[in-house]
Design a binder for these strands. Sequence first.
DNA 1: CGTCTATTTGAATGTACTCAAAAGCGGTGG
DNA 2: CCACCGCTTTTGAGTACATTCAAATAGACG
Lengths: 196, 196
Amino acid sequence: MIENLILKNIAKHISLDENEIIYFLSLLKEKKYPKKSIVLEEGEICRSINFVQSGTLRAFYRDSQGKESTIMFAIADWWITDMSCFINQQPAILNIETIEESHIFHLQKEDLDDLYLKIPKFERFFRIIMQNAYIREQERVIQNLSLSAEQRYHIFLKKYPQIVKQITQKQIASYLGITPEFLSMIRASKNKELFS
Amino acid sequence: MIENLILKNIAKHISLDENEIIYFLSLLKEKKYPKKSIVLEEGEICRSINFVQSGTLRAFYRDSQGKESTIMFAIADWWITDMSCFINQQPAILNIETIEESHIFHLQKEDLDDLYLKIPKFERFFRIIMQNAYIREQERVIQNLSLSAEQRYHIFLKKYPQIVKQITQKQIASYLGITPEFLSMIRASKNKELFS
DNA sequence: CGTCTATTTGAATGTACTCAAAAGCGGTGG
DNA sequence: CCACCGCTTTTGAGTACATTCAAATAGACG
């Protein structure tokens, strides 16, 4: 069954009966995106929170000079959106694009609000999702403040090996907040160590 | 009534009847901390999530060289803890100290777990608290990646004027991820502009 | 095969840090 | 009450980390 993954994702934190499952699935909008397509563009109202059934996505901020900062990557079994703009149904600040062909389930704001009322267990589910997201972001803040670019690079490689396989170094650099040129130097100096 | 502030804080997102209020208040442990005292020390199990009734607190990470990075400040009406370690009841990575004399309500993990079961509305309440915390941290990540120290400094001054009054520049520097010396230079160059 | 983009390399520059020393400020004890 | 002590803030010189710009090389894809 194609919905298997999202149901398993939810079953990690709450259990649903058959009717609840049917109702929940009825709210989802399934969509396939080809490689390098846009799922959310800055300025557009961010209508849905998105579950990745398969594929790889990237959320990034583009500043006035056009410089991109990657905020997060998402692979199968992850939730991704521009949370701030989703919650307030405002124009997105972030862009979300596919890196690989991706299969997404969209859950729209008004449907999520209904879901909270009809099946309050989902308050618990998303409380845990938000809690984990908060903890992850805070960890990233700590690392940004206390570690060098080189240390952050090696931690990223270790922590997200499945993601690393799918993405370019330019994208890793923009996640770490450094230039691709500097990341290249970090990698070169690492190789030098191997021969010293 | 002294609990007024915390009840108002909760009433922003959910409404409680009288019995629920009584039960909720029965779970809180009230405590006063003098200026410059330790509320949580790294290594110690992080047992409670804390509501600030009055005062000013700081959560910070101390690395192996002793360098401190401020993760967050909290003033009246804010919740603060080492979320990662609180959720997993593990030794704290962060330190939390008072900057001013502070009046705190502690809510322990086991009591919060009971609260979720007895009054499921609190799942909603903390879902919203976590959601807001996640959004704030993500915004900070975006700023750390895309802005200069000087820009981040001015945004901090604008965003948290009430906090700025209570804290030293050294503490602001450690929140921004720069040295106090460099913050001093930023401030000096700002003053120069005024006369140019 | 050719084109487009990613990656690497290098030189010059800028941003932020370290270390040291002086100046400012706040709290405490005599 | 004020003088001293300890900590914060400022200033400056020298240095390290990271960027910009340019150009060469390598890879990916139609």
